[in-house]
Amino acid sequence: MHIIKLPAIDSTNSYLKELITKQTVENFTVVVAENQTNGRGQRGANWEVESGKNLTFSVLIKDVLLNFEEVFNLNVVVAVSLFQAFTNLKIPNLSIKWANDILADKKKICGILIENQFKSNSEILSVIGIGINVNQENFSNLPQASSLKKISGQEWHKEEVLLNFLNQFQNNINLYKNEGATYFWEVYQENLFKKNVPMAFENSSSDKFMGIIKQVLPNGLLQIELEDESLQLFDIKEIKMLY
């Protein structure tokens, strides 16, 4: 594992993707930025953090995914690895919010953005961007966000949090390569936020409706049981949870 530490960068994902175009980069290369000025999340949202208080980093993964059908498996492995790493740190009341946010006490403490590159030789390179709210306490404009410090009541060494995850993730990648995705999907589904609980949703047309999350399919689509007991599938850009 090779770790590159930077004082400030616009986006660790962008930095790592550019590095790949210039030179051969070894598997499990990690880029960590003390301050990230243009971090991105799901739906194209910015990931805003207070400088020096949180973890923003990206990891290069290659020689893991064999075909397009396996792409969402990596989301699941990353989410489960973060869930397990936070469990190791004794962060309480954890859950995984579809597609791959990590919540504690129903508030977001970690987000993931995975960008895949499909090479002409069938190789799949994945750049995994992760933002963890570690010691930030002010979330005045983000009512659904929190941090390890706010949840646990203690200050954290960011290096400890980072290495805890990286070790867990590396072990899990090896397990995935040797035994497949079944175990990770079981953990993911078992800890899925609001699974089997009636809740409100909003679709891309801003229409609100009630439904029950039943499962996430291997292609990453969310299966929801509607009020008429029919089952409908949604992509990440088609629906928003209201909670």
Rank of each mutant, 00 (worst) to 15 (best):
E160F: 10
T12Y: 14
K150D: 06
V30G: 02
V216W: 15
N167L: 04
V25T: 10
Y15K: 12
I61T: 04
D10S: 09
F28T: 00
Y243M: 03
Q223V: 00
V30Y: 06
P218I: 01
L192E: 15
E160I: 11
L113K: 08
I61A: 01
L166K: 01
C110F: 15
E179M: 06
T29Q: 05
L148P: 11
L16F: 01
S120W: 11
N171P: 00
G129R: 05
L217R: 10
E160G: 02
L166W: 03
G41R: 07
V71S: 12
K158R: 15
L65T: 04
T24S: 14
F193H: 13
F139V: 00
T29H: 06
L226A: 09
S152A: 13
Y243T: 04
E115S: 05
Q223Y: 01
E155R: 15
P198V: 07
Q117K: 07
N116Q: 08
E137D: 12
P143A: 07
V134F: 12
V25R: 06
L166R: 02
M1H: 15
N133L: 07
L65M: 05
N27V: 01
L166F: 02
N174M: 13
P143T: 09
T56V: 02
N167I: 04
K5C: 02
N203Q: 04
Q189R: 14
N121L: 03
N171F: 03
L89P: 05
L142S: 13
N38S: 08
P92F: 12
L19A: 03
G131L: 11
F28Y: 08
A8Q: 14
E70T: 02
F234E: 09
K17R: 10
E227A: 01
L221S: 04
N88E: 09
G41D: 04
V127F: 12
N141P: 13
K149H: 10
D235P: 00
V25A: 01
S152Y: 07
I151L: 10
N46F: 12
V64R: 04
I61D: 01
W98C: 10
L6P: 07
F201P: 00
G153M: 04
E26S: 06
A8P: 15
N219M: 01
I173T: 08
Q170T: 00
G111W: 10
I239N: 11
L16M: 01
W156Q: 06
D10V: 06
K53R: 15
K195T: 04
L113Y: 11
S146L: 10
K97Y: 12
I91E: 06
M199R: 13
V80W: 00
E50N: 12
I102K: 10
L231I: 14
A45Y: 11
N133Q: 08
